[in-house]
Nucleic acid binder design. Structure first.
Lengths: 250, 250
DNA sequence: GCGGCAGTTCCAACATATGCAACGGAGGGG
DNA sequence: CCCCTCCGTTGCATATGTTGGAACTGCCGC
């Protein structure tokens, strides 16, 4: 592994929290300031860092590249217009998560009309056991893939509705698989809940999920459930655009 | 400048276009495959690269960090809810560009309801002479800052309505400053036009601009102009949130 | 005007990144 | 079925690129 590159990436990680002075950077890396300077200057020349009143932060080139990368993900371009329509309809936040290799990642987000924004972020890995999209995907995954996931899962408790027992989680997945949709009843954040439905590709395999999320105070779970027909319709439309015909072909 | 980091960044740039095989990367950098491998592996461990069927692409850690960075930009959190409301209202694409040091960058985008998406991208620098937001900002900038900008400007022609003459561009800016809003009449892409209005901070200085963009076929410029009152209202609301009171204090 | 602090420049020392050579595995053609 | 090729991977000696020291500058506060 390249020490120099490792350090450069570490610097970017530092920027992720807040802008940093050269001194801070050098201290954190445990290197001489001159070394830190050279690294930062290289990042800057590449557009990955930019100076902002005496400190450095993430550069715009990096932002643009990342944005581009998201839009290249297979699900994104197909699903996006559908998500916008759905978000538009109810004014709630809409998330799209995609199954990528062995993780589930948010790949699109349409913010609701409320003043508050959800903390989720495109590019962020989804916590499978406390999110609607995570559960929707896991529940509809084929056996071996699901087992591989479950084997890796830990069950941290985020709120008091979080499911922290593996057996209970399996039971929940079974329920979800049966009825075709998942919900999150304040399991990740006390004050938000959501309903989620899976998306399938041409072969009938689950490749992602869409959720409608809202503050419990604004729209309790019972109210969100009323949007399930619309949500299911959206997911069916996305799946159809992906070539799904309603059947499971392996 | 650090050669190693330069190479790592170059690799990320390669990923921006499309996934790359190790061989391609090595060839492009002009280094041995083993060298390329080590760099890519370092990127991968940091979440900046990820393997995808025999090739490598941008990793999600990088996407998440970039997303976070955008949301830290001062204008973004304040303006975002206003933009969502505005986008919601007409179903057209809404852009927010911010003046950052000596460049103008897209910092938010709310996609319209249509199936097509604009090519613009958050994090991307704005082309000042052929975009509504660029012109709106430039026109309302204070003299010295504007001159600094103009001095650096080249005037590439993108379409046949593009303004390519410096004098003509100055005249256009004067007109815009007078009436308080700018428009783009297919100057960057033939088939899209937009109207844009500046946003001011607590000191009355222009810090960004919001635009409503649409396909000409869908909503010609005359129609977009009808949305100016609403757009102006949105910008005033954002400006007020930033502490603007309607006066210019230096 | 002086002391201290943060960033910058230059350079010699050496740790580190580099390319070579050799290996392994997958795929295609004979 | 075997061989040959292509691509990614590993180990290692070499020298190149990175590193940190020391010395310089500019800025701020006292």
């Amino acid at each position: 592994m390249s020490q120099t590159v490792e350090r450069a990436l570490r610097i970017i990680e530092l920027f992720a929290e807040r802008p940093r002075s050269l001194g801070e950077i050098a201290d954190d890396l445990g290197v001489h300031k001159s070394t830190a300077l050279r690294l930062v200057q290289t990042l800057e020349r590449g557009g990955f860092a930019r100076p902002v009143d005496g400190r450095y932060t993430i550069g715009f080139r990096m932002v643009a590249i990342a944005q581009h990368a998201v839009e290249q993900l297979d699900l994104h371009p197909v699903a996006h217009p559908h998500l916008v329509r759905l978000g538009d309809r109810y004014g709630h936040t809409v998330h799209l998560a995609q199954l990528v290799d062995d993780e589930i990642v948010y790949v699109a987000k349409v913010d609701g009309r409320g003043a508050l924004r959800m903390r989720s972020r495109v590019g962020q890995p989804v916590d499978p056991h406390t999110s609607g999209v995570g559960k929707a995907i896991l529940a509809h995954l084929d056996e071996p893939a699901r087992e591989r996931f479950l084997a890796r899962l830990t069950y941290p408790r985020h709120t008091d509705t979080s499911i922290t027992d593996p057996a209970e989680f399996r039971a929940e997945l079974a329920r979800i698989a049966e009825r075709g949709w998942a919900e999150d009843d304040g399991e990740f954040e006390d004050f938000v809940s959501c309903v989620a439905v899976p998306v399938r590709d041409a072969r009938g395999r689950v490749v992602g999920a869409v959720s409608i999320t809202a503050l419990r105070a604004l729209a309790p779970l019972e109210r969100l459930r009323e949007h399930l027909p619309e949500l299911t319709g959206t997911c069916a439309a996305i799946s159809r655009d992906l070539g799904w015909t309603g059947e499971h072909r392996s």
